[in-house]
Amino acid sequence: MNAKIIVLALTPFAANAQGFAGLGGAADGFGLPTPAPTFDFPTDHGPHDNYRIEWWYLTANLQADDGTDYGLQWTLFRSALAPETGSGWTAPQLWMGHAAVTTSTDHYVSERIGRGGIGQAGVTAAPFSAWIDDWQFSGDWQTMAMTASGTDFAYDMDLNAQGPLIFHGDDGYSVKSAGGQASYYYSQPYFDIAGTLTLPDGDVAVTGSAWLDREWSSQPLAADQTGWDWFSLSFDDGAKMMGFLLRQSDGTAYSSATWIAADGTTTAYPDGAFRAEALETSATSGATVPTTWRVQLPDRGVDATVTAVNSDAWMQTSVPYWEGPVRIEGSHTGRGYLEMTGYE
């Protein structure tokens, strides 16, 4: 008994064991994002079952009263086997939750997987609630509550939105390759967050800021794209920046960025404007990944070094990746989150 069914059960996420690269698969029967979208809220906060993948992805940079930095992640992925909602056991919607807390020395991770259609996991738009098992993220997008627990950690957080939703790319139509692959992508990067982390050493009261990403698509990557390096950076001067590199198998990368001024106005940058260069790599408990980066957006005078708070923020989940808090130094200073996928 070596190949366990559970491993294969995850293939919708692992896309036939090719990891994130499998996201480049064809989108038969599923909806495809189209340019110049108009969103309808709160409906669009809910699931889009006719798209293959979708996520509610929250990361937060937290601080305890004593100044200790923490990172926090709460993610719910939806993966559809077929472009329909369905009900009961036959519903083709599968859900996967990831929760993590990162300190400078430790990285706590938990994963839940469940079936849509029976009530174990799902998202409702109004009133908004996203859940898998006992994990939950709910509220009216102004004040929200969030909870998750693993075998060795748990957290309860309250969130409060301090700014508007941010739409990436072309009003929320985010192009991912020269070939035109794209997703719908918007964020709420203005959450104030406060709550309690329950860690092996005891409870810690923390406060900080959180960034929520919403994205859905059916074929977000081109076939020759192998993974991505994604940055969400909050500068001390109030500006924010989202930037990503989609690595391509020929060694080049497709880049994209959104500059969010302190007043909430956004500027989308096309391929090539945003640059990120790995300065140092670290061997983690998974793959060896870059943990110090030089990121540049010359148009905004950004030339900063992004360093992982804990280089071993490896997510040992069914589809493993790296996700952790970072510090920013250089032309700009601040804090943020880094996600790296497709490293082996």
Binding site: I5, L8, A9, L81, P92, L94, R115
Partner: peptide
């Protein structure tokens, strides 16, 4: 075909 397995 795990998809077939799950989708019944």
């Amino acid at each position: 075909d795990i998809g077939a397995f799950l989708s019944g």
